[in-house]
């Protein structure tokens, strides 16, 4: 077992884990943060995307021990419980950017990372290119792209990053 200490959604966490524990397993099974999903489990679908030190990564292809000493943000960490949704979450709700919802946490975490890197005014082309690592099998992406464009703009007028 390996002892790890990291920050998850702003809170310090310490745990003993088997080194082969994936970050997504640790988040879901140890911390019960089940908003992060396991889709393909092969680093292709993006349902497991979280932020590691502020950057989007696939938590199914990251060992929990490799996150030791780092900071992780999951979909649960974007907005406080009971508080208004994060602007990107709100945009997905408003623009119907989901159907079954399975890919949504990963889509939103990828979208927030995209805004951090490329700003608030995103073309459809940029959004579609940047969604290369996130698969949705329901929507046909149209409303996801609209949601992200709107969420990116809304993030410019929000305190939540």
């Amino acid at each position: 077992m390996a002892k790890i200490s990291l920050i998850v959604n702003g809170n310090p966490v310490t745990a003993n884990v088997d080194p082969r524990t994936l970050l997504v397993q640790f988040l879901r099974e140890n911390l019960r943060l089940t908003g992060t999903h396991v889709g393909c489990d092969t680093s292709q679908c993006g349902a497991c995307v979280v932020h590691l030190d502020g950057k989007a990564v696939k938590s199914c292809t990251t060992l929990a021990v490799m996150a030791d000493g780092h900071s992780v943000t999951t979909i649960e960490g974007l907005a406080a419980d009971g508080a208004p949704l994060h602007p990107m979450q709100e945009a997905f709700r408003e623009h119907h950017g989901l159907q079954c919802g399975f890919c949504t946490p990963g889509m939103i975490m990828t979208a927030v990372d995209l805004v951090h890197r490329k700003g608030h005014d995103l073309s459809d082309h940029t959004i579609r290119e940047e969604l290369e690592g996130n698969l949705c099998r329901c929507t046909g992406y149209q409303n996801i792209v609209e949601s992200i464009a709107a969420g990116a703009k809304a993030m410019g007028n929000s305190d939540l990053t």
Binding site: G46, V57, T110
Partner: peptide, 9 residues
């Protein structure tokens, strides 16, 4: 290479 999340790692 890969996708944005892959490129971060």
């Amino acid at each position: 290479i890969g996708d944005p999340a892959v490129r971060h790692k």
